[in-house]
Deep mutational scan, measured.
Amino acid sequence: TFYNFIMGFQNDNTPFGILAEHVSEDKAFPRLEERHQVIRAYVMSNYTDHQLIETTNRAISLYMANL
């Protein structure tokens, strides 16, 4: 899942690491979701930090390219 992918960046001092920290603390994050459209919609609806949203979009693109 995307959640498992992004958790691989925990403790990294990178934008993906920052995203992983936010996702791990977000109890409502769709952890079992595999459809990138649902993940993107969730982030757009629940996150207000523009940098975090952009990082999510980049992470989703990388995740999709590696499926």
Rank of each mutant, 00 (worst) to 15 (best):
V43Q: 00
T56Q: 02
V23H: 02
I39K: 01
T55F: 08
V38R: 06
D49M: 06
H50E: 12
R40I: 15
L32R: 10
V23T: 02
L67G: 11
Q37D: 15
D26I: 04
E34K: 15
L67P: 09
E25H: 15
D12Y: 10
N66D: 10
H22M: 08
V23S: 00
V23N: 02
Q10D: 05
N11F: 12
Y3P: 00
M64P: 01
R40H: 10
I53H: 06
E34I: 15
Q51V: 13
Y63N: 01
I60K: 00
Q10R: 15
A20L: 04
E34A: 14
F2A: 00
H36S: 12
E33C: 06
P15W: 09
H36A: 14
A41R: 08
A65L: 13
F2G: 00
Y42H: 04
D49F: 08
Y42T: 02
L62Y: 08
T56N: 04
M7G: 01
D12S: 14
E25S: 15
T55G: 02
A59T: 02
M64Y: 08
L67Q: 14
N11Y: 12
Q37A: 11
Y63M: 07
T55R: 05
S24E: 08
M7A: 04
Y47K: 01
L52T: 04
L62V: 10
Q37Y: 13
E21A: 14
E21L: 15
G17F: 04
H50N: 12
Q51F: 15
N13D: 14
N4W: 07
L32Q: 12
E21D: 13
F2T: 01
E25I: 10
M7Y: 03
Q10M: 15
A28W: 13
S61W: 09
G17W: 04
V43K: 00
N57Q: 12
L19A: 02
T55V: 10
I60T: 03
I60C: 06
F5A: 01
Q37F: 11
H22W: 11
H22F: 14
N4D: 15
P30N: 02
G17C: 04
D26G: 03
D26P: 03
N11D: 09
F5M: 01
N46V: 07
I18D: 09
N13A: 09
E21Y: 13
F5R: 01
R58L: 15
V23C: 05
D12L: 11
